[in-house]
Each structure stands twice: as C-alpha cells, then as structure tokens.
C-alpha cells in the first residue's frame, strides 16, 4: 500500500547553518488492511514520517510510493490525498465549516462530486462514526470526541484506502478518547481500511498488527504490541506510562507473586488474581 525506500528528510537550521536530518534512511512497507501503530518519544520523527505518506512532505532523498504513485509526481497530488487521509491531534484545527454536514462535504466539494452522490457519501460517513444525528448541528456545540469523529467522517467521505491518525486522542477526555478509539477499531473491522496510528497511550496499541518504534529519526525496531509490555526498557525509552495492571504485575513479582502474563486489560488481570488466590485456597 505504502512503500518508503531510503527516505531521508532534512530541514535547514538557520541558527547552526546546517541541515538537520529529521528522518534518516527509512525503509518501510505498510500493507493493505494492516493496522500499524507508530511509537516514539516527542521529536523522534513520527509526525514527519507520516506526513510523507500522502505527499504533505516530500523526501529530501529517497522515494515514497503510495498505491503505485510516487509522491514526487505533482500531477497526482489530489489522487494520492484522496487515497490516504489524515486526522490530527487538535479537533478544533480541523473543522472548516459551521455546519457538521458541510464540514464533512468539504473534501468532496473540492473533488467536484455531483450533489446527489455527495449527500449519500456524507450521510454514510456520518453514520459510520455515529454522528448522523448531529448532521445539522454546529461543530462548536460538540464535545472534543464528537468533533474528532466529524474530522474522521470528513476523511472517510473521500473513501480513502488508508487513514493516518496523528495522536487523535491526546487532547480528549476519557470518554471522548473511548469514542474515537472505538470508531478507529470499527473502521478496521467494518471497512477494511488500512490504519496508521501515532499514539502515546498504551491502551491504544493493542489492536495493532505491528508496532513500529522510532528514535532520533530512525526506525529502531518492529515488534508486536505484547512485546512492548514484556520489556520494561521499551516502556522507559518510549516514555509510555504503564497501566495500573502492569504496575501491579511488577509489584506483585517483587513480593514473590508471579502472575502468568502481563496485560493492560483489567478483566484479564482480575481473572489471573482470582485464579492465583483460589490456588492458594486458604481463605
């Protein structure tokens, strides 16, 4: 779906008068229908990397080929951005219109889609994110989670093959976060959309097929979500905050109680403790 070959990206720094490399020789393939999570500290190059996927940024050297189109091909800019959509951190920065349905239709209008078709595309996109009832509302009356779902609908209406989410939940409250995470998971299941997700939130990595870890502009490893939990060094390096279930696992181990496996899921964690206590049978 997206192929990066030897991609480097540099920016000129006026203070030091030299080129700073933000991305260094990145090779990466993202496959169709895959769910990829990108992790890394602030400033590790995650956002810069994903902005290369649909030609928002063009590599200083190397090539990015998305669905057969090289992002350097200026004639195909529109096509590539229709295929790969993006959702960003701050919901307020992504809303352009004063009516929800008009906001969702913005991209389609620019593509010159006939009105009748547009109405059904917008309705479907809004249904998909569970915001159909709000189609005549004004976005400023919506919560952060709702606004973020409108932003997703706007991308979805373009019928993209891949959606890139750049920390879509970091500015939301817990409820908004859950709404958005559920929406992303449904996209993967229902529409088979390829998904790339940048996040700092450990609970959001578990639906991923593959986790890519970045540090100082390079991809330093590719792991499964579970491997991240197992290695405390990963958590520290990535600045991830352990869930309480993970802290509990390690603290119990420190007291000589070894639970069978690590999990961020509270139900699984509770089941393990129940099993452990039942084995002890001494209540």
């Amino acid at each position: 779906m997206i192929e990066l070959r030897n991609v480097s990206f540099s920016a000129y720094d006026e203070e030091t008068s030299q080129n700073n490399y933000i991305l260094k020789e990145i090779n990466l393939n993202i496959y169709k229908r895959e769910f990829v999570v990108i992790l890394g500290k602030n400033g590790s190059g995650k956002s810069t990397l994903v902005k290369h996927f649909n030609g928002v940024l063009i590599p200083t050297s190397g090539d990015v080929v998305a669905d057969g189109i090289n992002t350097k091909d200026e004639d195909k800019f529109c096509e590539i951005r229709q295929k790969i959509g993006m959702v960003f951190q701050n919901p307020d920065n992504q809303i352009v219109s004063s009516v929800v349905e008009e906001d969702v239709a913005f991209g389609l209008e620019n593509l010159g889609i006939p009105r009748r078709e547009m109405v059904s595309l917008v309705d479907n996109a809004l249904k998909c994110v569970g915001m159909y009832d709000f189609k005549k509302s004004s976005p400023n009356m919506l919560s952060g989670g709702q606004k973020q779902r409108i932003a997703i609908a706007g991308v979805l209406a373009m019928n993209p093959e891949c959606i890139v989410f750049d920390e879509p939940t970091s500015m939301l409250d817990p409820e908004g976060r859950k709404e958005v995470v559920d929406t992303i998971q449904n996209l993967k299941k229902g529409n088979g959309t390829t998904i790339v997700l940048i996040t700092h939130n450990i609970e959001e990595i578990f639906c991923a097929d593959r986790v890519i870890i970045m540090d100082s502009g390079r991809i330093v490893s590719e792991v499964t979500p579970y491997e991240i939990l197992l290695d405390k060094n990963y958590m520290r390096m990535l600045g991830l905050k352990a869930t309480q279930s993970i802290d509990l696992f390690y603290k119990l181990a420190g007291r000589g109680i070894n639970l069978p496996f690590l999990t961020a899921d509270e139900d699984k964690c509770a089941d393990m403790i129940v099993e452990f206590l039942e084995e002890k049978k001494c209540r």
């Binding site: 869930t243 509990l248 509270e266 964690c269 403790i273 129940v274 206590l277 039942e278 209540r283």
Partner: peptide, 23 residues
Amino acid sequence: QVTKIINKVHNKLDIKHKCVITV
C-alpha cells in the same frame, strides 16, 4: 483501573468489599 480489578476479584471470590485505589 486497580479499583476495578480488585472489585472484580472480591466479587468472584465473595470477599467482603474493601475499596482499593492504589497499586
């Protein structure tokens, strides 16, 4: 989260409820 975990453990094992809020 740990309150939920310990609640569930207490319920399943039928232990008298005590609210736990820290790891």
